[in-house]
Simulated assay, not measured.
Amino acid sequence: MKEHTDTASVALKTAQELGDLTSLGIAVGTVLGFLPYLAALLTVIWTGLRIFDWIEARSIRLQATVKVEKDKKNETHTPT
């Protein structure tokens, strides 16, 4: 059997492919347009987490230092 290619169906298929590519381009452009805002938001969240971690680590170190100092003080005042 001979395959029949209708000009209208070829034009329709080409238009659909062009529409798909245009849609994809618009979707990518939209995502890339929002990307700077998303990156800024994630940067703020990450920086906040790092600051919280730094404060928590400093607090833990300070508590450990105070405990060591108390232990040293107790050792010097304990009669042997």
Rank of each mutant, 00 (worst) to 15 (best):
3 E>V: 11
46 W>N: 12
47 T>C: 08
19 G>T: 04
80 T>F: 15
42 L>V: 14
23 S>E: 05
40 A>I: 09
67 K>V: 08
11 A>K: 09
53 D>K: 15
49 L>M: 12
49 L>Q: 14
4 H>L: 05
47 T>A: 13
18 L>G: 11
65 T>L: 05
80 T>K: 15
44 V>K: 15
2 K>F: 07
77 H>Y: 08
35 L>A: 14
47 T>W: 10
68 V>K: 08
1 M>V: 01
12 L>D: 03
61 R>M: 05
6 D>Q: 05
40 A>H: 08
60 I>F: 11
50 R>F: 12
46 W>D: 03
74 N>A: 15
44 V>C: 06
71 D>M: 10
18 L>I: 07
20 D>T: 03
76 T>R: 13
60 I>N: 14
36 P>S: 08
4 H>F: 04
18 L>P: 02
52 F>Y: 13
76 T>E: 05
38 L>C: 06
36 P>E: 04
50 R>L: 14
32 L>M: 11
79 P>E: 04
44 V>P: 04
23 S>W: 01
38 L>T: 10
68 V>F: 04
19 G>R: 12
79 P>Y: 03
17 E>K: 14
74 N>L: 13
37 Y>N: 09
43 T>G: 14
49 L>G: 11
62 L>D: 15
60 I>P: 07
72 K>I: 01
16 Q>A: 11
11 A>E: 00
54 W>S: 15
80 T>L: 13
40 A>W: 09
34 F>T: 15
